[in-house]
Design a protein around this nucleic acid. Structure first.
Lengths: 198, 198
DNA sequence: TTATTTACCGACCATTCGGTCAGGAATCAA
DNA sequence: TTGATTCCTGACCGAATGGTCGGTAAATAA
């Protein structure tokens, strides 16, 4: 809800709150499985009031996925631009990805479930592919440096690594106290050093 | 299509072909995003003809997810019942899971995307949870044996491991020649020994 | 030929869907 | 009080949805 003082008209929801609720509901019931009326009920207002905030269902999806994509892009850019060997940059990327996943859980979850039915979804998938490509390049560099195992195709390595990272959205639920760093540690340990006892 | 000779009535589709097409289409466009009319068009027949084969949309989902769940249950049962230390049984489980994922790709993919909107979906999720529980137990045993790293919670380890395995459905597409064993090798190598150069 | 079995079709139905519209209600500034 | 601004509602629309029904087409068996 938007309860800020100093604004002019009748108080009510602000766009961010609507987009957040949309992302959460889309994630729970699926985009196609969520009607605008469902969404309105979740927010406690009428369907037509929803259309006062947003131009349509697809725009809600756009706003939500863009938020996830902007976050991911920033994380990748930071890691790529970082100093030091590629392995270290990759580990930083994994850490930051875990943190982002947790910080922006509803948005990233929604992004990872997008299938390509509408133009908006296809646009999101295209942006995701660019990100995946940058990640694969970083992995390839680390392999070329001789820091990562060379017996597996770098593209495959990248996919499996981030398959593991992204799978967090399937079960992670926020708890009191920030355990993001702890979780990132566990992911990095298992991914880079392996499951087997050292 | 069912083109078997020696059958009585008019030739046409058989149930398995319909369920396969349903699983593929549900996976591509999503369950809610696929109408019975879409599905009929994919099969090249009318919607009402579809209802001659199945009682409804939900039954199609049930048949498809059950096929995946039956396969997964068999794989887990085999691994759990196998002789030898828990780590080896876990590695066998990962191998067999990768093979099953590839062999039954449309069905497993669909299962992994089920969200719990309908009674059928919730039933599938319940069965999946039982499977996940058995997997977590196997991981815990391997940790207790001292064969897997003990600095990460076994439940978390199991989730990350199978998060990686299950992520195959996001990108794997069948090619000529069976590369299932090769892929299983790569997954096991990365998962158990880690990304870093030995 | 005819009966039987199986597969299919077109027309139809109630409901739900995304979206529109004309107007009412709550706030602040003057 | 009045006007401007913002937020919200209920009634409505055409299209699509899951599902039904009465009848037809193609095959085998007699």
């Amino acid at each position: 809800m938007n309860t800020e003082r100093g604004k002019v008209g009748r108080p009510g929801y602000d766009l961010d709150a609507v987009v957040l609720a949309a992302a959460q509901t889309f994630t729970e019931r699926g985009y196609d499985g969520t009607s605008m009326d469902d969404l309105a009920r979740v927010l406690g207002l009428s369907k037509s009031a929803l259309y006062h905030h947003v131009s349509g269902k697809e725009q809600l999806l756009q706003l939500a996925t863009d938020r996830a994509l902007d976050g991911l892009t920033a994380v990748v850019d930071e890691a790529v631009a970082h100093a030091g060997p590629a392995v270290d940059r990759l580990e930083l990327l994994v850490r930051r990805s875990v943190e982002l996943l947790i910080a922006e859980l509803p948005f990233v979850t929604l992004l990872l479930r997008v299938r390509g039915n509408t133009a908006t979804e296809r646009r999101a998938i295209r942006r995701r592919r660019e990100i995946d490509h940058a990640v694969a390049e970083l992995v390839a560099k680390a392999v070329a440096d001789g820091d990562l195992r060379g017996d597996v195709d770098p593209q495959l390595t990248a996919r499996l690594l981030f398959g593991m990272v992204n799978s967090l959205v399937e079960w992670y639920r926020p708890t009191r106290g920030s355990d993001a760093a702890e979780l990132a540690d566990a992911v990095c340990a298992i991914a880079f050093a392996g499951l087997r006892r050292g």
